[in-house]
Design a protein around this nucleic acid. Structure first.
Ligand SMILES: [Mn+2]
Ligand SMILES: [Mn+2]
Ligand SMILES: [Zn+2]
Ligand SMILES: [Zn+2]
Lengths: 127, 127
DNA sequence: GTGTTATCAGTAATAATTACTAAAATTAAT
DNA sequence: ATTAATTTTAGTAATTATTACTGATAACAC
Protein backbone atom coordinates (compact mmCIF):
# COMPACT_ATOMS: atom_id res chain seq x y z
CA UNK A 1 0.00 0.00 0.00
CA UNK A 2 1.82 3.06 -1.26
CA UNK A 3 1.26 6.57 -0.05
CA UNK A 4 -0.59 7.41 -3.25
CA UNK A 5 -2.88 4.42 -3.00
CA UNK A 6 -3.64 5.13 0.65
CA UNK A 7 -4.54 8.75 0.01
CA UNK A 8 -6.71 7.92 -2.99
CA UNK A 9 -8.63 5.51 -0.79
CA UNK A 10 -8.91 8.01 2.05
CA UNK A 11 -10.17 10.77 -0.21
CA UNK A 12 -12.74 8.55 -1.88
CA UNK A 13 -13.98 7.45 1.54
CA UNK A 14 -14.62 11.04 2.49
CA UNK A 15 -17.29 11.67 -0.10
CA UNK A 16 -20.81 10.41 -0.63
CA UNK A 17 -20.74 11.23 -4.30
CA UNK A 18 -19.66 8.87 -7.02
CA UNK A 19 -16.71 10.67 -8.54
CA UNK A 20 -15.08 9.98 -11.87
CA UNK A 21 -11.37 9.23 -12.07
CA UNK A 22 -10.74 12.83 -12.97
CA UNK A 23 -12.70 14.08 -9.99
CA UNK A 24 -10.73 11.77 -7.69
CA UNK A 25 -7.58 13.14 -9.29
CA UNK A 26 -8.60 16.70 -8.43
CA UNK A 27 -9.41 15.69 -4.86
CA UNK A 28 -6.13 13.87 -4.32
CA UNK A 29 -4.10 16.60 -5.97
CA UNK A 30 -4.74 18.89 -3.01
CA UNK A 31 -2.70 16.53 -0.84
CA UNK A 32 -0.32 15.17 -3.48
CA UNK A 33 0.18 17.92 -6.03
CA UNK A 34 2.62 15.86 -8.10
CA UNK A 35 0.46 12.76 -8.51
CA UNK A 36 -0.37 11.82 -12.07
CA UNK A 37 -3.74 10.92 -13.53
CA UNK A 38 -2.44 7.54 -14.65
CA UNK A 39 -1.60 6.68 -11.06
CA UNK A 40 -5.14 7.53 -10.02
CA UNK A 41 -6.61 5.31 -12.71
CA UNK A 42 -4.30 2.43 -11.88
CA UNK A 43 -4.92 2.57 -8.15
CA UNK A 44 -8.67 2.94 -8.46
CA UNK A 45 -8.57 -0.18 -10.58
CA UNK A 46 -6.42 -2.03 -8.05
CA UNK A 47 -8.53 -0.92 -5.11
CA UNK A 48 -11.67 -2.15 -6.78
CA UNK A 49 -10.05 -5.51 -7.50
CA UNK A 50 -9.06 -5.70 -3.85
CA UNK A 51 -12.69 -5.12 -2.91
CA UNK A 52 -11.98 -1.90 -1.05
CA UNK A 53 -14.08 0.20 -3.42
CA UNK A 54 -16.33 -0.36 -6.41
CA UNK A 55 -15.97 0.64 -10.01
CA UNK A 56 -19.26 1.66 -11.56
CA UNK A 57 -19.96 1.29 -15.26
CA UNK A 58 -23.19 3.17 -15.60
CA UNK A 59 -24.72 4.95 -18.54
CA UNK A 60 -23.05 8.11 -19.67
CA UNK A 61 -19.57 8.22 -21.05
CA UNK A 62 -17.38 7.87 -18.02
CA UNK A 63 -16.72 5.41 -15.25
CA UNK A 64 -17.37 6.33 -11.65
CA UNK A 65 -16.06 5.10 -8.34
CA UNK A 66 -17.95 4.25 -5.19
CA UNK A 67 -16.51 4.11 -1.69
CA UNK A 68 -19.01 1.36 -0.94
CA UNK A 69 -17.82 -1.97 -2.38
CA UNK A 70 -21.13 -3.73 -1.74
CA UNK A 71 -23.39 -4.16 -4.76
CA UNK A 72 -26.26 -1.74 -4.80
CA UNK A 73 -28.31 0.22 -7.29
CA UNK A 74 -28.02 3.79 -8.48
CA UNK A 75 -29.99 6.60 -10.00
CA UNK A 76 -28.38 8.97 -12.44
CA UNK A 77 -29.43 12.43 -13.52
CA UNK A 78 -29.90 12.44 -17.28
CA UNK A 79 -29.04 16.11 -17.53
CA UNK A 80 -25.99 16.67 -15.31
CA UNK A 81 -24.76 13.15 -14.68
CA UNK A 82 -25.04 13.24 -10.90
CA UNK A 83 -25.28 9.79 -9.37
CA UNK A 84 -26.85 8.76 -6.07
CA UNK A 85 -27.64 5.48 -4.41
CA UNK A 86 -31.09 4.10 -5.19
CA UNK A 87 -32.54 2.98 -1.85
CA UNK A 88 -34.14 -0.21 -3.04
CA UNK A 89 -33.60 -3.80 -1.94
CA UNK A 90 -31.49 -6.01 -4.22
CA UNK A 91 -33.43 -8.25 -6.58
CA UNK A 92 -31.87 -11.47 -5.44
CA UNK A 93 -34.20 -13.72 -7.42
CA UNK A 94 -34.10 -11.90 -10.71
CA UNK A 95 -31.24 -13.90 -12.18
CA UNK A 96 -33.13 -17.13 -11.56
CA UNK A 97 -35.88 -15.95 -13.86
CA UNK A 98 -33.38 -15.88 -16.65
CA UNK A 99 -31.90 -19.26 -15.91
CA UNK A 100 -32.69 -21.69 -18.73
CA UNK A 101 -34.01 -18.88 -20.89
CA UNK A 102 -30.62 -17.72 -22.10
CA UNK A 103 -27.54 -19.35 -23.54
CA UNK A 104 -25.36 -17.19 -21.31
CA UNK A 105 -23.75 -18.13 -18.03
CA UNK A 106 -25.27 -15.50 -15.79
CA UNK A 107 -22.87 -13.80 -13.41
CA UNK A 108 -24.65 -10.70 -12.21
CA UNK A 109 -26.95 -7.86 -13.03
CA UNK A 110 -27.09 -4.11 -12.83
CA UNK A 111 -30.12 -1.96 -12.27
CA UNK A 112 -29.91 1.74 -12.90
CA UNK A 113 -32.61 4.36 -12.62
CA UNK A 114 -32.66 7.45 -14.76
CA UNK A 115 -34.19 10.74 -13.84
CA UNK A 116 -33.57 14.33 -12.96
CA UNK A 117 -31.86 15.51 -9.81
CA UNK A 118 -33.54 18.30 -7.81
CA UNK A 119 -31.42 21.04 -9.40
CA UNK A 120 -32.10 19.86 -12.93
CA UNK A 121 -35.80 19.28 -12.20
CA UNK A 122 -36.21 22.96 -11.40
CA UNK A 123 -34.46 24.40 -14.42
CA UNK A 124 -36.86 25.04 -17.33
CA UNK A 125 -36.36 22.00 -19.54
CA UNK A 126 -34.10 23.16 -22.29
CA UNK A 127 -33.13 19.93 -23.98
CA UNK B 1 -35.55 10.28 -45.57
CA UNK B 2 -32.33 10.21 -47.53
CA UNK B 3 -30.87 7.21 -49.25
CA UNK B 4 -28.21 6.91 -46.56
CA UNK B 5 -30.73 7.01 -43.73
CA UNK B 6 -32.94 4.44 -45.43
CA UNK B 7 -30.10 2.01 -45.98
CA UNK B 8 -28.78 2.37 -42.46
CA UNK B 9 -32.24 1.49 -41.19
CA UNK B 10 -32.58 -1.45 -43.56
CA UNK B 11 -29.22 -2.89 -42.62
CA UNK B 12 -29.87 -2.58 -38.91
CA UNK B 13 -33.20 -4.31 -39.36
CA UNK B 14 -31.51 -7.27 -40.96
CA UNK B 15 -29.52 -8.28 -37.90
CA UNK B 16 -30.44 -9.69 -34.54
CA UNK B 17 -27.24 -8.45 -32.98
CA UNK B 18 -26.78 -5.12 -31.27
CA UNK B 19 -24.10 -3.50 -33.38
CA UNK B 20 -21.98 -0.51 -32.48
CA UNK B 21 -21.92 2.53 -34.76
CA UNK B 22 -18.73 1.26 -36.29
CA UNK B 23 -20.24 -2.13 -36.99
CA UNK B 24 -23.23 -0.50 -38.66
CA UNK B 25 -20.77 1.57 -40.68
CA UNK B 26 -19.07 -1.59 -41.93
CA UNK B 27 -22.42 -3.15 -42.80
CA UNK B 28 -23.65 -0.12 -44.70
CA UNK B 29 -20.34 0.41 -46.47
CA UNK B 30 -20.97 -2.69 -48.58
CA UNK B 31 -23.92 -0.91 -50.21
CA UNK B 32 -22.67 2.68 -49.94
CA UNK B 33 -18.89 2.56 -50.13
CA UNK B 34 -18.54 6.34 -49.91
CA UNK B 35 -20.64 6.87 -46.78
CA UNK B 36 -18.85 8.48 -43.87
CA UNK B 37 -18.81 7.37 -40.27
CA UNK B 38 -20.19 10.71 -39.15
CA UNK B 39 -23.25 10.17 -41.30
CA UNK B 40 -23.83 6.82 -39.65
CA UNK B 41 -23.60 8.33 -36.18
CA UNK B 42 -25.91 11.20 -37.08
CA UNK B 43 -28.56 9.01 -38.66
CA UNK B 44 -28.51 6.40 -35.93
CA UNK B 45 -29.13 9.25 -33.53
CA UNK B 46 -31.96 10.66 -35.64
CA UNK B 47 -33.55 7.25 -36.17
CA UNK B 48 -33.56 6.60 -32.45
CA UNK B 49 -35.15 9.97 -31.80
CA UNK B 50 -37.80 9.12 -34.38
CA UNK B 51 -38.50 5.91 -32.48
CA UNK B 52 -37.53 3.68 -35.37
CA UNK B 53 -34.65 2.10 -33.50
CA UNK B 54 -33.15 2.24 -30.02
CA UNK B 55 -29.84 3.52 -28.80
CA UNK B 56 -28.41 1.37 -26.01
CA UNK B 57 -26.10 2.75 -23.38
CA UNK B 58 -24.96 -0.39 -21.65
CA UNK B 59 -21.81 -1.18 -19.74
CA UNK B 60 -18.63 -1.39 -21.72
CA UNK B 61 -17.16 1.53 -23.53
CA UNK B 62 -19.31 1.89 -26.61
CA UNK B 63 -22.90 2.54 -27.50
CA UNK B 64 -24.92 -0.03 -29.37
CA UNK B 65 -28.00 0.10 -31.55
CA UNK B 66 -31.06 -2.10 -31.50
CA UNK B 67 -33.49 -2.60 -34.35
CA UNK B 68 -36.22 -3.02 -31.74
CA UNK B 69 -37.32 0.38 -30.40
CA UNK B 70 -39.39 -1.11 -27.57
CA UNK B 71 -37.78 -1.04 -24.13
CA UNK B 72 -36.43 -4.40 -23.07
CA UNK B 73 -33.56 -5.81 -21.11
CA UNK B 74 -30.24 -7.18 -22.24
CA UNK B 75 -27.46 -9.51 -21.23
CA UNK B 76 -23.89 -8.71 -22.12
CA UNK B 77 -20.86 -10.98 -22.28
CA UNK B 78 -18.21 -9.67 -19.93
CA UNK B 79 -15.43 -11.13 -22.02
CA UNK B 80 -16.26 -10.36 -25.65
CA UNK B 81 -18.96 -7.73 -25.36
CA UNK B 82 -21.67 -9.65 -27.20
CA UNK B 83 -25.17 -8.45 -26.36
CA UNK B 84 -28.44 -10.37 -26.54
CA UNK B 85 -31.97 -9.71 -25.42
CA UNK B 86 -32.77 -10.89 -21.91
CA UNK B 87 -36.11 -12.70 -22.14
CA UNK B 88 -37.63 -11.37 -18.96
CA UNK B 89 -40.79 -9.38 -18.39
CA UNK B 90 -40.40 -5.65 -17.72
CA UNK B 91 -40.45 -4.62 -14.09
CA UNK B 92 -43.30 -2.16 -14.39
CA UNK B 93 -43.67 -1.55 -10.67
CA UNK B 94 -40.03 -1.12 -9.79
CA UNK B 95 -39.98 2.65 -10.18
CA UNK B 96 -42.85 3.00 -7.73
CA UNK B 97 -40.71 1.44 -5.02
CA UNK B 98 -38.35 4.32 -5.36
CA UNK B 99 -41.00 7.00 -5.35
CA UNK B 100 -40.71 9.08 -2.20
CA UNK B 101 -37.41 7.47 -1.32
CA UNK B 102 -35.33 9.63 -3.63
CA UNK B 103 -35.02 13.31 -4.35
CA UNK B 104 -34.90 12.57 -8.07
CA UNK B 105 -37.71 12.80 -10.57
CA UNK B 106 -37.72 9.23 -11.85
CA UNK B 107 -37.99 8.85 -15.59
CA UNK B 108 -36.97 5.29 -16.33
CA UNK B 109 -34.75 2.40 -15.50
CA UNK B 110 -32.36 0.03 -17.14
CA UNK B 111 -31.67 -3.57 -16.18
CA UNK B 112 -28.68 -5.31 -17.61
CA UNK B 113 -27.43 -8.80 -16.94
CA UNK B 114 -23.78 -9.71 -17.11
CA UNK B 115 -22.38 -13.09 -17.93
CA UNK B 116 -20.48 -15.17 -20.41
CA UNK B 117 -21.73 -16.11 -23.85
CA UNK B 118 -21.46 -19.77 -24.93
CA UNK B 119 -18.20 -19.22 -26.82
CA UNK B 120 -16.54 -17.43 -23.92
CA UNK B 121 -17.91 -19.91 -21.39
CA UNK B 122 -16.02 -22.71 -23.11
CA UNK B 123 -12.66 -21.00 -23.41
CA UNK B 124 -10.39 -21.77 -20.46
CA UNK B 125 -10.81 -18.74 -18.26
CA UNK B 126 -7.73 -16.67 -18.87
CA UNK B 127 -8.53 -13.40 -17.17
C1' DG C 1 -36.50 25.33 -62.89
C1' DT C 2 -35.15 28.37 -58.90
C1' DG C 3 -34.40 29.13 -54.37
C1' DT C 4 -34.33 27.28 -49.62
C1' DT C 5 -33.06 23.94 -46.39
C1' DA C 6 -31.26 19.68 -44.84
C1' DT C 7 -27.81 16.40 -45.29
C1' DC C 8 -23.46 14.64 -46.81
C1' DA C 9 -18.33 13.40 -47.08
C1' DG C 10 -14.27 14.44 -45.33
C1' DT C 11 -11.64 16.02 -41.83
C1' DA C 12 -10.43 17.98 -37.38
C1' DA C 13 -11.24 18.22 -32.55
C1' DT C 14 -12.73 16.21 -27.86
C1' DA C 15 -12.50 13.44 -24.11
C1' DA C 16 -11.91 9.23 -21.45
C1' DT C 17 -8.90 5.80 -20.91
C1' DT C 18 -4.81 2.95 -21.64
C1' DA C 19 0.04 2.09 -22.77
C1' DC C 20 4.87 3.07 -22.39
C1' DT C 21 9.26 4.20 -20.01
C1' DA C 22 12.98 5.65 -17.25
C1' DA C 23 13.34 7.04 -12.48
C1' DA C 24 11.98 6.45 -7.72
C1' DA C 25 10.14 3.88 -4.02
C1' DT C 26 9.01 -0.23 -1.82
C1' DT C 27 9.91 -4.93 -0.45
C1' DA C 28 12.67 -9.04 0.25
C1' DA C 29 16.95 -11.17 0.93
C1' DT C 30 21.37 -11.16 2.71
C1' DA D 1 21.84 -1.88 7.31
C1' DT D 2 23.19 -2.96 2.29
C1' DT D 3 22.13 -4.92 -1.59
C1' DA D 4 19.29 -6.84 -4.99
C1' DA D 5 14.71 -7.67 -6.97
C1' DT D 6 10.20 -6.03 -7.67
C1' DT D 7 6.64 -2.75 -7.89
C1' DT D 8 5.03 1.69 -8.53
C1' DT D 9 5.36 6.28 -10.03
C1' DA D 10 5.33 10.72 -12.95
C1' DG D 11 5.25 12.17 -17.24
C1' DT D 12 4.07 11.56 -21.72
C1' DA D 13 2.34 9.36 -25.86
C1' DA D 14 -1.12 6.52 -28.00
C1' DT D 15 -5.78 4.71 -28.55
C1' DT D 16 -10.62 4.80 -29.14
C1' DA D 17 -15.29 6.32 -29.35
C1' DT D 18 -17.71 10.15 -30.36
C1' DT D 19 -18.74 14.92 -31.70
C1' DA D 20 -17.95 19.27 -34.21
C1' DC D 21 -16.98 21.80 -38.31
C1' DT D 22 -17.28 23.03 -43.29
C1' DG D 23 -17.87 23.61 -48.07
C1' DA D 24 -20.19 20.71 -51.46
C1' DT D 25 -24.29 18.09 -52.72
C1' DA D 26 -28.82 16.38 -52.59
C1' DA D 27 -33.67 16.76 -51.21
C1' DC D 28 -37.70 19.57 -51.00
C1' DA D 29 -41.08 23.47 -51.79
C1' DC D 30 -42.94 26.54 -54.84
MN1 LIG E 1 -23.23 3.96 -4.54
MN1 LIG F 1 -32.35 -5.77 -27.89
ZN1 LIG G 1 -28.90 16.99 -12.56
ZN1 LIG H 1 -18.39 -13.71 -25.18
Amino acid sequence: MTQQRQIILEELRQVNSHPSADEVYEMVRKRLPRISLGTVYRNLEILSELGEIQKLELGGDLKRFDRNPIKHYHIRCMRCGRVDDAPIAPLNQIENELYGATVYTIIGHRLEFEGLCPQCSKTPGKS
